[in-house]
Nucleic acid binder design. Sequence first.
RNA 1: UCCCCUGUAGCUCAGUGGUAGAGCGGUCGGCUGUUAACCGAUUGGUCGUAGGUUCGAAUCCCACCGGGGGAGCCA
Length: 464
Amino acid sequence: MMATKPIAEILRQGKPDESVEIRGWVRTKRELKGFSFMEVNDGSFLANLQVVLNPELPDYENLLKRLSTGASVAVQGVLVASPGKGQRLELKASSVVIYGESDPETYPLQKKRHSFEFLRTIAHLRSRTNTLGAVFRVRNACAAAIHQFFQERGFLWVHTPIITASDCEGAGELFRVTNFNLEAIPQTDKDEIDYSQDFFGRPAYLTVSGQLEAEVMAMSFENVYTFGPTFRAENSNTSRHLAEFWMVEPEMAFCDLKGDQDLAEEFLKYIFKYVLEKCPEDLEFFNQRIDKSVLETADNIINNQFERISYSEAINLLIKADRQFEYPVEWGLDLQSEHERYLAEELFKKPVIVRDYPSKIKAFYMRLNEDEKTVAAMDVLVPKIGEIIGGAQREERLDVLSDRIEAQGLPKDDLWWYLDLRRYGTVPHAGFGLGFERTVQFMTGMANIRDVIPFPRTPLSAEF
RNA sequence: UCCCCUGUAGCUCAGUGGUAGAGCGGUCGGCUGUUAACCGAUUGGUCGUAGGUUCGAAUCCCACCGGGGGAGCCA
């Protein structure tokens, strides 16, 4: 019985004379007079396995006709040292089974390079290309790294709800969740929508963050993290926005802003190192073909101590900067993308953590500092992307939190359970959020976020 | 949501008022080890949609639709 092996395993550690079976999809075929070559890919590896097809194979002529790009095959044979350049091993086929043919007249993928715009229109086939294949392997490795990082440190993976009733995150527009018949929405006497008749008896939404619930869980397990889908209905049309994306949110009890920053830095270093070890060929490919600074970026993250400055220091540095910004720099105003990129890209040339932002420009749950003007927030800024992590020490004092909720005009009654956490056994705690796709973008150098998620959801686009 | 660019063959694009083009792909043939194979031939079109200007529109004007980039918002 012949062992079926992933092509990655064969190319990494296969030996000549070994009998193997592979399965996969034909990437390309080259017919010569006496025999033919075909390259097969099974998604396990960036490179294809070259298969040699000799005329002695049963039904050779007909087989060659049917083995076009995209066809699915199983090949049995013997590994031999390749006399040609470009590969160590090749598979001398003794039997080829075609599972499904692929009409070359209509199969949209060519051997030639395609634009990412075009590939987005064939999202059901694009994962068979070199670049998207590499992206999804890196994405997988990155997800595995995230879990391993937290699991090694005793963090509990908590599953926070996808559907939420609280509209008080202030983080973008929400998608409504309802089972109303939209042709006939129940109304009250006052001609308002009667949510009491809706599925949850109140307005409900898709979550924009699992943070508040993660805080609940941190108050019983100390260290927790969420890793799941998040939804924003913002009409954002940029290369950095998705309506549906994945977010990682650790939350730590008995932790302050310093500990939060330490974890964020350690975390980024860990996942970059992990992916570099697991997918070296893929990252090398990105470095060569997509963005020639990919490896340098990884090295920069892994081997540099992140710069840490306060918001006030950041403002001073920006004022002193030897260049003009489009947007004004002034204490009290939020940092714009151009400011963040200047700090990380030009001034420090490495990741920068900015902390202690003015309270007025940050969320209600962030802890008020002694100066009463700033909050214990921190953003990790990286070259090229800007903000990749946003976090804070949370306000654990009931009275201060109540005041801030009221000051921001938020519905305090809806947050009764969140406030309860401060009534019963409150502790200092902190956490942060990391956009998963932006991280994969950063790692791979892919310019558009729609090309690092298999099935991107953006305004007017949800076909696949 | 705002600003800019763009829509021509399966793909990437040229054509800017006078008969619709190239490269790649596909197909056929050739080639004793190819690997973005190579060489030769061949195939391929409602020029995004609908109006308008004009003797004549892919080309100029208007509207709509799609795609991309940027900004804002954010992760």
